[in-house]
Design a binder for these strands. Structure first.
Lengths: 162, 162
DNA sequence: TATTGTTATACTCTATAACTATA
DNA sequence: TATAGTTATAGAGTATAACAATA
């Protein structure tokens, strides 16, 4: 037995606290989005990206949202059915699909965002000082960029039977 | 229009970085757990709690894992079917179900944990200094405790039509 | 050939409500 | 009455693989 599990207790505790806190936050945020906009978090993310860019290809939209292509097609289909986005061919690349946010989509984001922010403020930022906020932003930005750069490392070294 | 959305840009950026980083981490961790132990993250969490306590009631097991009761019953059923836990009545309270981890369950946790920790170390802790680690642990512990204490605040203030 | 996106399909997970049994 | 847990069921989401079309 190696000491591969010799992660410091502090590290393990930090990891679990991080995961649990975000899990709780995500749960709260999803309730708010569902109640005020009938949106899942993923759908909100997609709309938020589109509210910023107005128009993106499926591939561009997939960046920053982890999914499989088919998952994105599914979600885009839902958003289109709800009248929040439209889909059409791209003039530049005939293979691409351009997703465009509608007025209704923009309106919905505007309607949902304040409550969303309120939840985040109450749950995440309330117990933090300005310095905490700065530290957390700095740390998580670094971690995120590091993860984005990491080679996907397809799964695991080996796969014990069963 | 109120200034309800006047969350500082720094706050919004921190929030998004946090959510995205954790999303990426969770994705990576789930792949590892699936590949090396055929477990979901939830199942791993349940087994990890049980590896620590050996025996818990369903209600105790539900603490720290957000779910609905039925969701927990479902997961416990899967773990039992896989031979990783057993379920039986409690001597203290005839209503309660005692969930006990088996030797196989303990072995599986032992087999999966090193790889799990390796992924967390590589993705989360690699780009962090000791001071970052300390800050992050301190911050997220405080946030988590704050969220746990928060009144569930059932959903949202009001629900715009549509 | 590689890339973009969709479809078909199967599966996992989660939540709600109704129900049983014990406290 | 309240609490612990299960069941039935329905719905949302995700992934894989096969496919079509364009670059």
């Amino acid at each position: 037995m190696s000491d591969a599990d010799a992660l410091h207790p502090a590290q393990l505790g930090t990891y679990f606290a991080l995961m649990e806190a975000v899990s709780l936050l995500q749960h709260a945020v999803e309730q708010q989005l569902r109640a005020e906009g009938d949106l899942s978090y993923v759908q909100f993310q997609l709309l938020a990206h589109l509210a910023d860019a107005r128009q993106l290809t499926m591939t561009e939209l997939a960046d920053g949202v982890v999914y499989s292509r088919s998952g994105l097609t599914y979600q885009a289909g839902l958003l289109e059915k709800a009248g929040l986005v439209t889909r059409g061919p791209s003039p530049d690349d005939e293979r691409a699909t351009l997703v465009t946010i509608t007025e209704g989509g923009l309106a919905l984001v505007g309607r949902v965002l304040p409550g969303h922010i309120e939840v985040v403020r109450r749950l995440l930022f309330n117990p933090l000082t300005d310095e905490d906020l700065h530290d957390l932003g700095d740390i998580m930005t670094r971690v995120r960029d590091h993860m984005r750069a990491e080679p996907p490392r397809s799964a695991a070294p080996r796969k014990p039977r069963k």
